[in-house]
Design a protein around this nucleic acid. Structure first.
Lengths: 341, 341
DNA sequence: AATAGCCTTGCAAATGTTTTCATAAATCTG
DNA sequence: CAGATTTATGAAAACATTTGCAAGGCTATT
């Protein structure tokens, strides 16, 4: 009564078709090398047996694994959803399969996940940002697997990177508020340790503000995870204090969304009572009420570009030349910011 | 000048450690079978060479591939984000790696993706819903790979399923509106061909409404994809007509979110001018302003349960007994619905 | 002290493919 | 039509690992 199921292999196909295994392999991988009539026989045998070729076997032979790994902090946090989708679509179009892993902003776990993906012999690997453990960098170097950092552009990166200049994004957001005359500005960012994207944005934003001679009040620099509920809670707390800022600079659109809801919840009018700016321009940010003013990060384009880059490197037999691609981030003025009255 | 990089294999580790390859393999896979001192030597050699074992080779030997496939319509659509996250977390905790594929509601493409995952010899595979091509069902049966349908519960399913009764969800939503006295009810659902979740919800909702003797007006049964922007647009159109419904029953929370924004945009008060109910209770639905009344689908629990089920089947050596797990869906009353005045 | 049993390790076969090399058949060239 | 070239196919080695079997060394039992 044992599970006897015999999964047909290439030789059973070959036998049925009356040819050798080599011919079947060729019919599959280099169809132009085998005669049409033979090809037909092989196809029929494959169909008849329900043969599905074993990628592991070709991987082991030294051929491609036809997989690409992607390591992100989180899949569900909406920040990366669009990116993962675009990356996956591009990779999939070229016949690759995506190995996905998420580490919840824990870089030690990231190292473990990268190792796991390398065990599977991914043909290339992408990670978010450039903050990684030295061990992670080392193992990637040793294994000589094509690798790319997605989401930020850094002129001095050790590895290829495809993304935006996060400092610029932070600066853009800050300058917009300053330009509108705001001086009482609060910032809300997530924990910036191990998160170079948030860190760069925050530093640049605060730098811009200070540079104009505006004082940054300690108690207005909030910290909250990328999460609507928590952001809303923090903002409600902030906005019910005796002294209120006139503008909120949010680390990303999710936080900004929470901020809008907080204001609405308190009966404050956005942007009349409080201006709010986000960073990201996520799917849906344009439809919020009021529509969110934000700094656009072209997530889909970045994801697709990163995937294309890695595929190119794979196709050129792993000559992993360092490439740095910088996407522009653009201020999208909608309705959540207005001049200080 | 060729890429000479020699990735260390198990025999180079064995040589360095002064043992045989078999011992290295055992030290890795069955540490209790090898003496502590030998194990230590092996560990050192592994460390020294930076050896990373090749999963493809063990896959080929007939052992597990240590991968699980997940096929979803979309990663970015927020409907599945939470699910993918939970599924991935659970799978990852047990040492498996996730192979992800998305087909954008195209079931022919789904078939191709399933085949691709089978080529990689995933140890198990999960898909969304029970609407699949006959070919898909056939190939899964032939390959005898453990498989589960996530998201809906169906007592007569061909394969294991873990999810909710979507008809119940639709009914719950409809009954809530009816109970509040609404008679002028509009529904907004996505295309229901090839989407059994939406179809069951919609049919049950409309059934409940008709059963109470309430007429369903043709022109109030809208169709829109799961997308905030499109939903908002459709709802704006609906709500600016001469005759307006008093309640909107939305296929899921994303559509409902678009509906809320549409109402807000038109200066209508929710729920005073129009009641809105969603289905799903996605992340963030509780924080919307006003907080969304909806029928909760426990996405994280479903995803984790599905993953656990598949892992159990794998561990029990592929005895894929048919299991059907039904999660309850629960009406979450928040603030977007009120009694018809 | 001899035998039985266990623990640890090594040898070699097996896994499913791809690819190099060789060979046979077919086509071309003069 | 003979020799040269091209084309189609097969045989076998190689890839990195796991595991059944066997053997050697050790401990325990009588």
């Amino acid at each position: 009564m044992k599970k006897q199921s015999y999964r047909p292999d290439i030789v059973s196909v070959a036998t049925l078709a009356g040819v050798s295994a080599a011919t079947v392999s060729r019919a599959l991988n280099h169809p132009e090398l085998v005669q049409p009539t033979t090809r037909k026989k092989v196809d029929q045998a494959i169909r008849k047996l329900g043969y599905i070729r074993n990628r592991a076997a070709q991987t082991i032979h030294g051929r491609r694994s036809a997989t690409i790994g992607l390591v992100v902090p989180s899949v569900s946090d909406a920040i990366f959803a669009e990116l993962v989708q675009a990356f996956n679509d591009t990779v999939s179009e070229s016949g690759f399969t995506l190995l996905l892993a998420s580490h919840r902003y824990d870089l030690d776990m990231e190292y473990a996940l990268v190792r796991k993906l390398l065990e599977h012999r991914v043909d290339a690997l992408a990670m978010i940002g450039l903050d990684h453990r030295p061990d992670t960098y080392r193992v990637l170097r040793e294994q000589e697997v094509p690798v790319a950092a997605i989401w930020n552009y850094q002129p001095d990166s050790q590895i290829s990177c495809i993304g935006i200049d996060n400092a610029e994004a932070g600066r853009r957001a800050a300058e917009h508020l300053l330009m509108l005359g705001h001086r009482r500005i609060a910032t809300i960012f997530p924990e910036t340790r191990d998160n170079d994207r948030a860190r760069a944005r925050r530093l640049a934003a605060m730098g811009s503000i200070s540079a104009t001679g505006v004082a940054l009040r300690e108690e207005w620099q909030l910290q909250t995870p990328y999460n609507i509920a928590q952001s809303k809670r923090s903002c409600i707390e902030l906005l019910t204090r005796a002294e209120r800022p006139t503008a909120l600079l949010c680390g990303n659109d999710v936080i900004a969304q929470g901020a809008i809801y907080a204001a609405l919840h308190l009966g404050l009018s956005v942007p009349r009572d409080i201006s709010i700016i986000g960073i990201g321009d996520f799917d849906g940010s344009a439809e919020l009420e009021p529509p969110l003013t934000t700094v656009r990060i072209p997530a889909s384009r970045i994801g697709a570009a990163a995937a294309r880059h890695l595929i190119t490197v794979i196709d050129s037999d792993g000559q992993d030349q360092l490439v740095r691609t910088r996407f522009d981030c653009e201020l999208i003025m909608r309705s959540t910011t207005t001049a200080r009255t």
